[in-house]
Amino acid sequence: MTDISNAQPRRLPEPAAMVTLIKPITWFPPMWAYLCGTVSSGVSPFSSIGLVLLGMFLAGPVVCGMSQAANDWCDRHVDAINEPYRPIPSGRIPGRWGLYIALAMSALSLLIGWQLGPWGFGATVLGVAAAWAYSAEPVRLKKSGWWGPGLVGLSYETLPWFTGAAVLAAGAPSIYVVVIALLYGIGAHGIMTLNDFKALEGDRKMGVNSLPVTLGPEKAAWVASIVMAVPQVVVIALLWLWDRPFHAAGVAAVLLAQFWAMSVMMKDPKGKAPWYNGVGVVLYVSGMMISAFAIRTLGAGA
């Protein structure tokens, strides 16, 4: 193994580390939610494909990427314990470059959001503010196992869904869109709680009171599962009441599959949480798109 103890510290970020910093794997949920919003708007996404693609780019690589950079900068001391090979604690992004990248991407987010009109820009301002409120002192809502995941869930699912619908419709979304988007954002609180399992030890040492820290892995997994499931049950009931029985059945089917995945996770919550985030989340977002198609004509008629 090469001895790097005497290696000179970097002055500029490593290009590959800059890509790692903004975590492309995390871009999918907000991009998908934005796409769900465009579908649910009642306007054909193909009629304004430029706005659809620009909005998805903004929601994923830009705003979500910025939030990841901001979080890694604010979490650099925790990551030095949990994951010392991450870009900032490893020195591949040296000095204050992590902060500079997050600030530059915040400005880029606002610039692109401006191109989406008043609804898109307003939502972008909220998204950027939420990202910094989650990670940065003195607010740092990440310290709370309730407020932190809740804010991220709403930012990852509800806000981009609402934005996609508002941008494409060039106006306020229907109440159907708002309610369904809000329910899926609330349910995403559970997904974010499961994501906290990987940082359990470092969070405990650094005073981050995530639910896995305060409740323990087993109880936190139960809470996460309930929080994910209940909003979907409400979605199923609403789709049935809104005369969308086949869509309601589709969401019910993916929820049943999630129950199976939850039963597997409960056998080893800490070990299986990452597995669930790969399997259960795919099922969760599938239900989102089914719901988006269900309400698109309801929204158009509102």
Rank of each mutant, 00 (worst) to 15 (best):
W222P: 01
A188K: 00
F197Y: 14
N209S: 12
N195P: 15
I180Q: 04
A181L: 11
M228Q: 13
D203R: 06
R204D: 12
G190D: 03
I191Q: 00
E218Q: 14
W222S: 08
K219P: 03
L215S: 11
I226H: 13
L183E: 04
A199P: 06
L194D: 00
M192Y: 10
Y184R: 01
A229I: 10
P231Y: 06
L194Y: 01
G216V: 10
L211N: 04
L182W: 09
N195C: 14
F197Q: 01
V223W: 05
R204Y: 10
L194V: 02
K198Y: 11
G202C: 08
G185C: 09
M206W: 02
L215T: 08
W222D: 09
D196V: 07
E201C: 13
A224N: 08
K205A: 15
A188R: 06
W222H: 12
E201Y: 14
A220L: 04
V213C: 07
G202F: 02
A221W: 01
F197R: 03
L200R: 08
I180T: 06
N195A: 14
A181C: 14
V213F: 03
T214F: 06
I226G: 11
N209P: 01
V213N: 02
W222Q: 11
G216P: 08
H189E: 03
L200A: 10
V227T: 05
V208H: 02
S225N: 13
L211K: 05
A229N: 07
L215R: 13
M206Y: 00
S225K: 05
V230D: 02
G185M: 05
P212G: 08
G187C: 09
S210F: 04
N209A: 12
K205G: 09
V234C: 08
G185K: 05
L183R: 05
F197E: 08
Y184M: 08
S225M: 11
L200T: 08
S210M: 00
T214C: 11
S225H: 08
L215Q: 13
W222V: 13
M228K: 07
G185D: 03
G187I: 04
A220V: 02
V234W: 04
D196N: 15
L211T: 00
P212F: 07
A224K: 02
P231E: 07
V223S: 05
L183T: 05
D203G: 07
N209H: 09
E218F: 15
H189Q: 11
